[in-house]
Computed example of a mutant assay.
Amino acid sequence: PREIEIMLAVGILAGVATALLQAISYVCSASFMQKYRSSLRLVIFSQLVMGAFSLLFLPFFFPTGLKGRLWEFFGWIVVWVTVFIVGQVAFFSSLRSIEASRMSSLLGLKIVVLAFLYVAVMRESLAAGQWLAVVLSAAAAVGMNWSGGNHFTLKGLFWLLVTLVFYSLTDMTENHLVRMSEGVGILRTAFGVGVTCYAILGVLTLPMLWKFRWTTRQFVLAIPFAASWFFSQVALFVCFGLLGTVFGNVIQASRGLISIGIGMLLLHWGLGKLDARISRKMWLRRIAAGVLMTAAIILYAVSGA
């Protein structure tokens, strides 16, 4: 039916918008990281920025389609905060054993973990073509910037697995929150869920200021990253609400290619520089990854029709 086709198109566009905004957020983090060289500090201050922004809009956009499920909704907010924080802790713990560049690629494996959790927890099956799409997108995401290197330690693998599992649970919880609040339009619902989640997370982040002393400069420098990240999450909620978490993550695998494209544009305009000279082999790998990602998106959409 045409309505389903429209929902599919909007969901895919929202997924691409998520990937684009997340890629932009990484570029926006550059000024903060150059000054403070701490990804954890950036996370803390960006969450404070998003919390302040969300608190301003919360009274006007709090989800209204809950129909007597308010306490259940807040219960799931608690679940979201819990799995999100555990995922963040695991991510930063994994960085002690795995280089950031390799960790970025390995996060592409979240698609596979999410698919298994989706089947095991939600008791819903994926078609053979959808499983193939999941594997293709994971292979593309991991292979795009994979540089090999030393073997992993058991500790590093443990924290990587915890990161993948809890990031996947975060996605599943976000999807559930959006579906709970449906009834007033997907865009308003997504924004309402977003401001609710990040308002609460911002408040809970305040105690972290004991570790990182407050300065207005840090808060201001975190704004570009926080803004692009927040709206990427709103787009993500729209994508999840229309397509589900697995398909949404398949589409998000394209953010690696988008990041490369943005980097090349900045280089062309004289606003950035490549981290390293890119070999012909790396370019061929990235082209192959782009083909795999495109094939995965098409295959998942066709298999689920």
Rank of each mutant, 00 (worst) to 15 (best):
V83N: 03
A288I: 05
L187Q: 12
A14I: 03
Y300D: 02
L236P: 09
F116T: 09
A288L: 13
F240T: 02
S105G: 14
L160V: 06
M33E: 09
W283Y: 14
L42E: 01
G51P: 02
R285T: 14
V49K: 08
A199R: 02
K67W: 00
G185E: 10
I77A: 10
Y118K: 07
G185H: 12
Q218W: 12
I223R: 10
W76H: 13
L132P: 04
V119N: 09
R123E: 09
W210Y: 12
A9I: 10
M103W: 07
R2A: 14
K211D: 13
E5W: 00
S279T: 13
L274H: 12
A296W: 02
V135Q: 03
G290N: 12
S39C: 10
L157C: 04
L70C: 10
Q130L: 04
L177I: 08
L109T: 07
A30V: 13
L58K: 07
S168L: 01
A52Y: 04
L66K: 08
V89H: 11
V203D: 04
S29K: 07
A140Y: 02
C197A: 15
G290F: 00
V142Q: 05
L8M: 13
S54D: 08
G11Q: 02
C239D: 07
L242E: 05
E182F: 08
V234A: 02
F45C: 03
G156P: 04
L187I: 12
S168A: 08
L169I: 08
F116S: 08
A276E: 15
A139H: 02
S147N: 14
I4M: 15
R179L: 14
S181G: 09
L243T: 02
L21G: 04
T163R: 03
V165P: 01
C28M: 13
T205H: 09
Q34W: 10
H176L: 13
V27F: 11
L209E: 02
S105E: 06
A127V: 08
I260F: 13
L117Q: 03
S254R: 00
L66Q: 08
S279K: 10
P63I: 09
L257N: 00
F158P: 06
I6S: 15
Q88G: 11
M103H: 08
V112I: 11
L106C: 05
A133K: 03
L265K: 10
A128C: 01
W269V: 12
A296Y: 00
A14Q: 06
I98S: 01
V86C: 11
A227K: 11
W80D: 10
V134K: 00
A141H: 01
F237G: 04
M33L: 14
I223A: 13
V220D: 06
A222P: 09
G65T: 03
L201S: 14
A190G: 08
Y36W: 13
V43P: 01
